[in-house]
Simulated scan of single mutants.
Amino acid sequence: MERARVDHETKRAARAAEPGAWASIKETLKVGTQALLIALVVRTLLFQPFNIPSGSLVPTLLIGDYLFVSKYTYGYSKYSLPLSEYLPFKAEGRIWGAEPKRGDIAVFKLPKDNATDYIKRVIGLPGDKIQMKAGLLYINDVPVKRERTTPYETTGPYGEQAKAEQYIETLPGGVTHLVIERDGDNGYWDNTEAYTVPPGRFFMMGDNRDNSTDSRDLANVGFVPFENFVGRAEMIFFSIDEGTAAWQVWNWPANVRWNRLFSAIR
């Protein structure tokens, strides 16, 4: 009888504890759901993280840089939404749109597939005439000012160590940034036809002029529609040497580029 009474008391205590345990589980689920919703709102409307997988914007952005892109700067289009390439509906244009400015570094969806993320610098605005002549950028038939500076240590086309000519380039409007010419002034894209940027389109280029697939390549990138813009690159929040995985925390002391953390992008 004593044992039966103990078992009965144990079961009664367990039943009494059930509502409290269930309440705790519900509270955990509620907090987790709220956190996910907040993260989704921030990613969709405010900031989205990206990492740099290629050297097309060297020396401004390096492979292994992780950065925040502001979604609100240019307003919102279908491509502001996560996994936009899988959405069943079509939506054109932007809401609360503000056009990119010359010199902005921006993430956009590649017009060729409307899915692949690209990041380049805004060089040509709608109506502009853009051309490269012997490595020199011309905008509306006027050569863009550039000044030679210290050569940049980089890698050649076969992975060898090399020095690239480096210039300070000043775009119309006053934006100043660095560019490099790995192959001198006679690389494949250093002499081009004249491109006239159509209405509602933008001309994008990398700062690594001889190692960038950009709007000069009409077959693969070409002119970028305004609605394809995802956002403007604002800040590097993390940076690690090429070839080192960000999750390998034991390599951070030696391989993190500490001087690039939390630096503004220009």
Rank of each mutant, 00 (worst) to 15 (best):
K163M: 13
P172I: 01
A115P: 05
A162C: 12
V142N: 05
L83D: 15
I95W: 14
K90I: 10
Y167W: 13
S70N: 14
L83N: 14
V175N: 01
S84R: 04
R94L: 14
K90H: 15
I95M: 14
K129F: 03
L171I: 06
H177F: 09
I139M: 02
I105S: 00
A164L: 07
I119C: 03
T149H: 13
G124P: 01
K90D: 15
P111T: 10
A134H: 12
P111C: 13
V179Q: 01
T170G: 05
S77G: 12
I168P: 02
G184I: 09
D113W: 08
P143I: 05
P100I: 06
Y79H: 08
S84Q: 10
Q166K: 12
I119S: 02
V69P: 00
G127L: 10
I130P: 02
P82R: 10
R102M: 07
R121A: 04
I139R: 00
K120Y: 02
I180E: 00
Y118V: 03
K90L: 13
G173I: 09
P111M: 08
S70R: 11
R102C: 07
P143G: 10
Y158A: 13
A91S: 14
G93S: 08
E181H: 05
R146E: 06
S80E: 04
E165T: 07
G93I: 10
Y118R: 02
R182A: 05
R148L: 15
K163I: 03
Y72W: 15
L81V: 13
